[in-house]
C-alpha cells in the first residue's frame, strides 16, 4: 500500500506522515500543491491519497478529479479546514471517499483512514 500526502503546509504533511505510520504503508510520498501532486501521482500510483483543498497552483478538488481520471479505484481522503457543509458535499461529489475537518488529531485521522479501508 502506498500513500501520497498533498498539503501546502509542511507542518500538516509531517503530522499526517507521523500519524499514518501506524498503517505500515510500504511507501509514503508528499506534494505541496495540486499540480505537483498530479505529477507525483502519475509516477508513484498510490493506493491512498490525503488531499488538502486550499492550495496554490491547483486546488485540491480539481486535483481529486484529475487523479480519479488516472486511477478511478484510488481512495482519496480530503482533509480541509473549510467547515461549511457544502465543501464536504462538493468533495464527495467530485469523487473523494471521505472528508476530515482540520484541526484533526491522530485519533480522528486514523479513524478516517480506517473507514476508507473498510470500504
Amino acid at each position: 500500500m502506498k500513500l501520497l500526502i498533498v498539503d501546502d503546509s509542511t507542518l500538516i504533511r509531517r503530522a499526517i506522515e507521523r500519524f499514518a505510520n501506524k498503517f505500515q504503508f510500504d511507501e509514503i510520498r508528499s506534494a505541496n500543491n495540486g499540480a505537483n501532486a498530479l505529477k507525483e501521482f502519475k509516477n508513484f500510483l498510490p493506493d491512498v491519497v490525503t488531499m488538502d483543498i486550499t492550495m496554490p497552483e491547483m486546488d485540491g478538488l480539481t486535483c481529486v478529479e484529475a487523479i480519479l481520471r488516472e486511477k478511478p479505484e484510488v481512495q482519496i481522503l480530503v482533509i480541509s479546514a473549510l467547515a461549511d457543509k457544502s465543501t464536504a458535499v462538493e468533495a464527495i461529489k467530485r469523487g473523494a471517499s471521505g472528508f476530515l475537518l482540520k484541526p484533526f488529531t491522530e485519533e480522528t485521522l486514523i479513524t478516517s483512514l480506517e473507514e476508507l479501508f473498510e470500504e
Binding site: S9, T10, L11, I12, R14, A15, R18, T54, S80, A81, L82, A83, D84, K85, T87, L101, K102, P103
Partner: peptide, 28 residues
Amino acid sequence: MGESLSDRSILLDSVGEIVSIITSNARE
C-alpha cells in the same frame, strides 16, 4: 503537536497554517 523541527521555515509555515485553519473553520 509532536513536531521536532524548529527552524524559521517551519515557524512561518505553522503560523500560516494556524491562521488558515482558524479562518477556514469560520466558513461554517
